[in-house]
Write a protein that binds this DNA or RNA. Structure first.
Lengths: 215, 215
DNA sequence: CGTTCGATTGATACCTGTCAACAAGAGTGG
DNA sequence: CCACTCTTGTTGACAGGTATCAATCGAACG
């Protein structure tokens, strides 16, 4: 898939879910007057449209930010797999649950953090997720994000986003390189954001759940 | 459970999930400096802690707003039930998916709507959900919400929340009655909020998913 | 070579947060 | 029963954050 193509879940009669193999995408909602809120950024390893298999209409849009490679699966395949392996069902549920935790944090970011905190926090989250997904440490510091995208993700105007971004640059925390955001000082960013990665960590299943699953 | 008791998921060694039978609760996160973001309001019929069965640490707090009656179930019971009835597993997943749609909309509300729109939109959502859960039309217009709660849910200061609330009262859209929010003019609220209920509607499962499940 | 999009800047208005203060009611403990 | 405290609701003044408007510039694109 190419950047800019609109990959709206609602239109596809033949419903599928996807896992992103390579590239970035965004999931967003539009208001009638054009205001846009980006709900989350989708990177390799992320699940797309899993829950939308349960609804006949989609309420949001997914759009590639870069050339995108995805794996897809149908509801039939999913249920067949679940019957053979409850572990797989739990694994997919885990991914969905993880995504919901990120939504929770996105809510805190927008609702209760100040502009610079918001931006720094988002950068740290993406960095963490890229590393978790297996990106090399250097690659995990480069984001293909424009200021309008940041604005719509952080719930600010693009102009204020620009000023906030400049502030982070001036403080030496980030920089711009060929249209890409580059993290320069993750420690300082983390401190500024009050970033606590615990909501992103992948521990083992709790013992009771593990035992119940094994039976 | 009584109001004010803290019902933190993290502390309970014996992990369970819950369905609210009666009463209201909130799910929220706190920042270190005391800022609080309410992620959602929980009303009868809502699922609590379902996904947290998959994690060993909780990242948010759940707290009753009113006297609360809940049903609980353990991971073992859940998995046993799923083995007997895939339909039940899908039903629970549907509830979780529905909750995520509400999170999406909460993000749009906070990120891209103005103060009065935010408040009106939240009121409409809760009204819709109460009706969907079987509340009588009159009861579905009365919310046990205080201004500090609204503030932390809408991502605004409690003072500005007060001003915004006064504005809705002045316009005759809502009123205060014995500490409760009362909806007076749902049509006007809906119009002001730009409320579109499609994200809350419960249609049938899409055909491919239904067929895959039936096999 | 127009056109579009992103980055950038300055001026201005306004929305929103903060500070300070007080009233009223609920609950608490003496 | 009376302080006393805590929460909620309320108001005004004020500062500051943020949005909006207007405009320029460069790069990418067709």
């Amino acid at each position: 898939m190419e950047r800019g193509e609109r990959w709206i879940n609602e239109d596809s009669e033949f419903r599928k879910a996807y896992v992103i193999a390579d590239g970035w995408a965004i999931r967003y909602k539009l208001l009638e007057d054009g205001r846009r809120q980006i709900l989350n950024f989708l990177i390799p390893g992320d699940l797309v449209g899993y829950f939308s298999l349960l609804f006949s209409t989609s309420i949001c849009t997914v759009e590639p930010l870069t050339p995108l490679v995805v794996h897809s699966f149908t509801p039939e395949k999913a249920f067949d797999a679940f019957r053979q392996s409850p572990q797989l069902a739990v694994a997919l549920s885990w991914l969905a649950a993880q995504a919901e935790r990120q939504l929770d944090e996105q809510l805190v970011r927008i609702g209760r953090r100040k502009a610079t905190e918001r931006m720094a926090h988002l950068f740290m989250e993406i960095n963490y997720r890229l590393l978790r997904a297996g990106a090399p440490p250097q690659a995990a510091k480069h984001f293909p994000l424009t200021q309008p995208l940041l604005a719509d993700a952080l719930g600010m105007s693009h102009i204020h986003t620009h000023r906030t971004f400049r502030e982070l640059i001036r403080a030496g925390l980030v920089s711009l390189d060929a249209g890409k955001v580059v993290l320069r000082d993750r420690n300082a960013l983390s401190r500024l954001a009050g970033f606590d990665s615990s909501y992103l960590e992948q521990g083992p299943l709790p013992a009771p759940t593990r035992e119940a699953l094994a039976r």
